[in-house]
């Protein structure tokens, strides 16, 4: 379908790292069912490195593809690098998203951050709360 790039369709039809993770070190969930998309991201962390990552997503084609691409982009990376993952980078890696679907890449960025925050919270790792400002609800409100 012309709506999406081939890369989006590839990640939609063959999502990478999909599924729940039973022994995750951090779990982040963003979005809400009312708006039509929820992403849940699981990470496993060893020595500050994201050694494994997986996701489950309720949402449209671009939401699923964005989740899949984000997991590939942070797998094996230090946490600090994962926190720098931007929605733009996700959208670019997907060879672009239609304008009204860009919020899906924002959700992917936020899901990664939420998973890291959960990992920090569970392990008593101190962080600057300002690092984790803004969530999906705001994103949707801004769009409306």
């Amino acid at each position: 379908m012309a709506l999406y790039s081939e890369t989006v369709m590839d990640h939609f039809q063959h999502p990478r790292n999909v599924g729940k993770m039973e022994d995750a070190d951090g779990i982040g969930e963003v979005g809400n069912a009312k708006c039509g998309d929820i992403m849940r991201m699981y990470i496993k962390v060893r020595d500050g490195i994201i050694t494994d990552v997986s996701f489950i997503t309720f949402g449209c084609g671009s939401a699923i593809a964005s989740s899949s691409m984000a997991t590939e982009m942070i797998k094996g990376k230090p946490i600090e690098e994962a926190l720098e993952l931007s929605n733009k980078a996700v959208a670019q890696a997907l060879d672009g998203l239609p304008a009204h679907k860009l919020h899906c890449s924002v959700l992917a960025e936020e899901a990664v951050r939420a998973a890291v925050k959960d990992y920090y919270d569970k392990n008593g790792i101190a962080y600057d709360p300002a690092m984790f400002g803004g969530d999906c609800a705001e994103c949707h409100l801004n769009q409306e």
Partner: peptide
Amino acid sequence: EGIEGESLLLWLDAKGVAASSGSACTSGSL
């Protein structure tokens, strides 16, 4: 329940069924 219409349509198309949905994602609005 529990799924979103646009991904349903895209998969049905891949499996050889042209259908439509009233999901937000197919309408371009939220």
